[in-house]
């Protein structure tokens, strides 16, 4: 194995000079980011810096227009893939605001999702008993009320339940790369602990997690290997976990002054 092959093998996601705009306004202005299997990255930044847009672009949301740059995901051109193909290849987006789908039960929703992934991998649809067992185990994982599974997707869920439901889905789908967009927003400390615990338990040398957050608090529970600061559509600083603490202490103005 050459060095180059070794490097590509370990690199899960590689973003090169990514520019994206929404309705003609440039939001991402040249992002470079590399994530390897087994790593936890945190992306921090003030409101409007482009954090959520970056998450959406990786997941395949169409509203952002990619004007330049590329994204390689496990050796494939990610921008060429439909959102559902990305999901089946192991990308998971934990939504900042999980969507309610009236009438579609969590059970049917998850079964469809699991079976689409299995079909993609050339597997038979999951057996009912195995599916129910899996649901039960993963629900316990994020302490999700078992009643919720019989209800419509996110409908009538509290803020905390919605976020736990995101991690539950993550546990069900066993993604390679999880992007958690402001998963901590609107969570009380107990719910935050449950969510963080879930994420930590799912961590393995084969998968990677990107935690997008405004606050350092979540990073007390999910300890990142690398912290990036996103500001005005660019990653302006990358460092170890101590960067989050420094940022918390000095505030985002420090970054603004730092780069100007």
């Amino acid at each position: 194995m050459t060095i180059k092959q070794f490097q590509t093998k370990n690199t899960m996601l590689k973003i090169t000079n990514l520019h994206a705009s929404i309705e003609g306004k440039e939001i991402l202005k040249g992002i470079n980011l590399e994530i390897k299997a087994g790593e936890v990255h945190a992306i921090m930044g003030p409101n409007g810096s482009g954090k959520s847009t970056l998450a959406s672009v990786i997941a395949g949301r169409e509203y952002a227009n990619i004007t330049e740059g590329k994204i390689q995901y496990i050796g494939k051109d990610l921008l060429d893939m439909l959102p559902e193909e990305r999901a089946r290849e192991g990308i998971f987006l934990g939504f900042q605001y999980p969507i309610e789908i009236p009438g579609v039960s969590m059970v049917n929703f998850m079964k469809s999702a699991i079976n689409e992934k299995r079909k993609h991998n050339g597997q038979e649809p999951i057996k009912a008993a195995a599916f129910l067992k899996m649901m039960r185990e993963k629900k316990a994982f994020v302490e999700l009320d078992s009643q919720l599974a019989n209800r419509s997707v996110n409908e009538g869920f509290s803020g905390g339940e919605k976020k736990r439901n995101e991690i539950f889905q993550m546990a069900m789908l066993e993604p390679k790369l999880s992007i958690l967009d402001e998963t901590d927003s609107g969570l009380d400390i107990d719910a935050l602990r449950i969510v963080a615990n879930g994420v930590n338990k799912l961590k393995s040398p084969e998968n990677a997690t990107v935690v997008i957050t405004h606050y350092q608090r979540l990073l007390d529970y999910i300890v990142p290997d690398v912290v990036h600061v996103l500001y005005d559509g660019k990653i302006v600083k990358t460092s170890g976990k101590e960067l989050a603490l420094e940022l918390e202490e000095k505030g985002y103005d420090w970054i603004k002054n730092h780069i100007n």
Partner: peptide, 10 residues
């Protein structure tokens, strides 16, 4: 899109 992001085609 929420469904798509879970692997369910459009």
């Amino acid at each position: 899109f929420y469904c798509q992001s879970r692997g369910i085609p459009k």
